[in-house]
Design a binder for these strands. Structure first.
Length: 374
DNA sequence: AACACTTACAACCGCAGAGGT
DNA sequence: CACCTCTGCGGTTGTAAGTGT
């Protein structure tokens, strides 16, 4: 050692920035199977190019099954205000009193809404002089002029009045598969979810094993197949494949050929072809495309499935484009997506053909090393 | 339409404390 | 008891998206 504290990880060797669905899936699948006894060792064992800290944060704040997503209720906000009054910036302590809420989330809500709202109340009741005083503790950009009422600030950011729903401008593009699923399989999805209670339980944390004996490389194919078909109840994927008369074992065989064994390059490349962000799943949940607003308790199934649907759509080339099948309506200069489902999508033969094309694409794995980009 | 500004949130960073050796 | 590793916490930053002009 020597020369001070060792860094938690080699920054040059780890990926940073937003997590991709592929990474999320890897992390979820690993923790589902092996628990998280040792965060430092987890990334390597799970085949993730992240530092343990990043994995922990992602799990705690976003992927954990019991994380409660969506709007803070007025009661929760009141609780935060009261607890902050007595505890100060002890976000983890405050979070412990709000089941399903993370310290990070509470901290963000406080800094972006509650602090300003309180400042506004102060200014209302005590006048301009006190307002200026309170603003000194806010961000430098804050001012009584720039401050807007909470309700207005929330537009389009998942904090809307539930009765009004998401603002159109922020509403994610409803993909073709989602359209199809919404119209044909949502009811059965809910039924299926009830059949698979274990996959959304809080059992992740309880799955503690000897991490030293974890051998991810020994079961790569099982892992991806779990990801595709079992984890989070990807019944939609099943439905789509069945509707297209595609034998599941065809896909299984193709997936089995993928170079999965802790192959960083593969996962990096997968991210390149699955560029959508995980927030989409959250947004879907918020917008009601996924039943319910609680991402962590049950809806993680559908939200994660939606991510996979988008991925598959991307692979199948079925995602609607602006030119082909979306109508854009402008409100206040903002483009709003109004999905239009083309007739052709409902043709299952087409879906099958597109899927076969995707399978042909998979046959080109692994891609050339030059195509890998960090 | 384009640009600048603002907002919200996910992710990162550094530090402190607990626990092991 | 000193040192080390690991985890968790709180502050801060980066960035996507909304808003204003």
């Amino acid at each position: 050692m020597g020369g001070g504290r060792a860094p938690c990880c080699d920054k040059s060797q780890v990926k940073r920035g937003p997590w991709s669905p592929a990474e999320d899936l890897r992390l979820i699948t690993f923790i589902q199977k092996h628990g998280h006894e040792n965060w430092r060792a987890l990334p390597k064992q799970a085949g993730l190019l992240r530092c343990g800290k990043s994995c922990r944060l992602r799990w705690i704040n976003y992927l954990r099954p019991d994380v409660k997503r969506g709007n803070f209720t007025p009661e929760e906000e009141e609780t935060i205000i009261k607890l902050h009054d007595s505890l100060g910036n002890k976000w983890s302590k405050i979070a412990s009193r709000l089941p399903g809420r993370t310290d990070n989330e509470i901290k963000n809500v406080w800094n972006t809404h509650l602090k300003k709202r309180l400042a506004s109340k102060v200014s209302d009741s005590q006048g301009e002089e006190l307002n200026e005083f309170s603003m000194t503790s806010s961000s430098s950009s804050s001012s009584s002029d720039s401050f807007k009422p909470y309700d207005n600030q929330n537009k389009g950011l998942g904090l809307e009045d539930p009765e009004n729903g998401a603002s159109p401008a922020k509403r994610p593009k409803m993909t073709l598969l989602e359209e199809k699923l919404n119209s044909k399989t949502l009811d059965s999805n809910l039924t299926n979810e009830a059949k698979e209670p274990s996959s959304c339980s809080n059992s992740y944390d309880s799955k503690i094993t000897d991490s030293s004996q974890v051998d991810v490389a020994s079961t790569p194919d099982e892992e991806l197949m779990d990801s595709l078909f079992n984890y989070s109840g990807n019944y939609e994927v099943h439905d789509i494949l069945q509707e297209a008369n595609i034998e599941q074992d065809i896909l299984s065989n193709k997936v089995a050929e993928l170079p999965l064994e802790s192959d960083y390059d593969f996962w990096n490349n997968l991210e390149n072809i699955a560029p959508f962000q995980s927030n989409e799943a959250q947004q879907l949940s918020r917008d009601g495309l996924v039943e319910g607003s609680n991402f962590g308790q049950g809806c993680i199934h559908q939200a994660e499935s939606m991510k996979w649907l988008r991925y598959l759509e991307s692979e199948l080339g079925l995602e609607a484009t602006k030119d082909e099948s979306h109508e854009y309506v402008t409100t206040k200069g903002r483009a709003v997506v109004e999905p239009l489902v083309p007739e052709t999508f409902h043709n299952e033969t087409m879906l099958k053909q597109e899927f076969n094309l995707a399978m042909a694409y998979f046959q080109t794995w692994p891609p050339s090393p030059q195509s890998f980009a960090m």
